[in-house]
Simulated scan of single mutants.
Amino acid sequence: MEEQRHRYGPPLYSLTSMILSIRLFLSLLWIRYGATKLKREQLALLEEAVEVYTREFERFLKFISEVFANAPFFISAEVAGALDASKNDDYKEITVPAGKTYEVLLSVDSVNSYIAWDFSLVQGKINMDIGFSLEFLSPSGDKTLMLPYRRYESDQGNFCTLMGGSYKLIWDNTYSTFFRKVVRYKVDCIPPVTEPVESD
């Protein structure tokens, strides 16, 4: 890492110094000539400095992106197994818009069945979470909270059913005003294991 800093650091440091000089020039200019307009020569000098900075910064970014793209210490997504995991047909990917919920309804026939879930948010530049809860819906339409609401980035768990009926898994994004959430999930209802009947 030290070698990379010595090799690629100085061009970035000089670009940083240049933009700081431009900023200092502007600050001093505005302090000194607060109410007056910039002279044509000053404006031309400022425009040229900004153009040089922009051109050099773009060149540096292109160069450093090629360095990282060809770096031997990065591995591809295929090697890491990320693509294989996303190709798994058991998982579904859904988008929960800001201010909305997404629900999965499972019908459970037997007591002591297990409802199992595994989900995670597809994260971007900002780490996000989503609300998750589990409800039981009686035939009369009454709701009973079985797993209390909590916010997660990811969760894996199961719940042993106390009675047959409908169970609703809820991903809740109603608290978010701006951000939609992309959720990869898998849910399953596993019936109870029955003891084999011994014959005489």
Rank of each mutant, 00 (worst) to 15 (best):
M1C: 07
G9I: 06
P10T: 02
P11G: 00
L12V: 13
L12F: 15
L15Y: 01
T16S: 05
T16K: 06
T16G: 02
S17Y: 06
I19G: 05
R23P: 01
L28T: 09
L29Y: 12
R32A: 08
Y33P: 00
A35V: 04
L38N: 01
L38E: 03
R40V: 12
E41L: 09
E41T: 13
Q42E: 12
A44N: 15
A44C: 13
L45Q: 09
L46N: 08
E48P: 05
A49R: 02
Y53I: 00
F57K: 11
E58Q: 15
R59W: 01
K62L: 15
F63N: 12
F63K: 12
F63H: 14
I64R: 00
E66P: 00
V67N: 10
F73I: 11
I75H: 09
S76I: 01
S76L: 01
A77D: 07
V79G: 08
V79P: 02
V79F: 12
A80S: 07
S86W: 10
K87H: 14
D89M: 14
Y91M: 13
E93K: 04
I94W: 09
I94P: 10
I94V: 08
V96W: 00
P97D: 03
A98Q: 10
G99M: 03
G99D: 05
K100P: 01
Y102G: 02
E103L: 03
L106W: 02
S107A: 14
D109H: 08
V111R: 09
N112C: 01
Y114L: 08
Y114M: 09
F119L: 04
S120C: 11
L121V: 14
V122E: 13
V122Y: 07
Q123N: 11
G124F: 05
K125R: 15
I126K: 13
I126P: 01
N127E: 10
N127C: 08
M128K: 15
M128W: 10
I130P: 00
G131N: 05
S140I: 06
G141I: 00
D142G: 11
L145S: 07
M146T: 03
Y149A: 15
R150K: 15
Y152H: 09
S154A: 15
D155F: 13
Q156E: 09
Q156C: 05
Q156K: 12
N158M: 14
F159P: 00
F159Y: 08
F159R: 00
C160Y: 13
L162C: 05
G164M: 01
G165H: 01
S166V: 06
S166C: 06
Y167E: 04
Y167S: 04
I170Y: 07
W171A: 04
W171S: 03
N173V: 02
N173M: 03
Y175W: 10
Y175F: 09
S176W: 04
T177K: 11
T177F: 14
K181T: 05
V182H: 04
V183H: 00
K186R: 11
D188T: 07
C189N: 13
I190M: 04
P191Q: 06
V193S: 07
V193K: 08
E195W: 12
P196Y: 04
E198W: 11
S199M: 11
D200Y: 15
D200E: 14
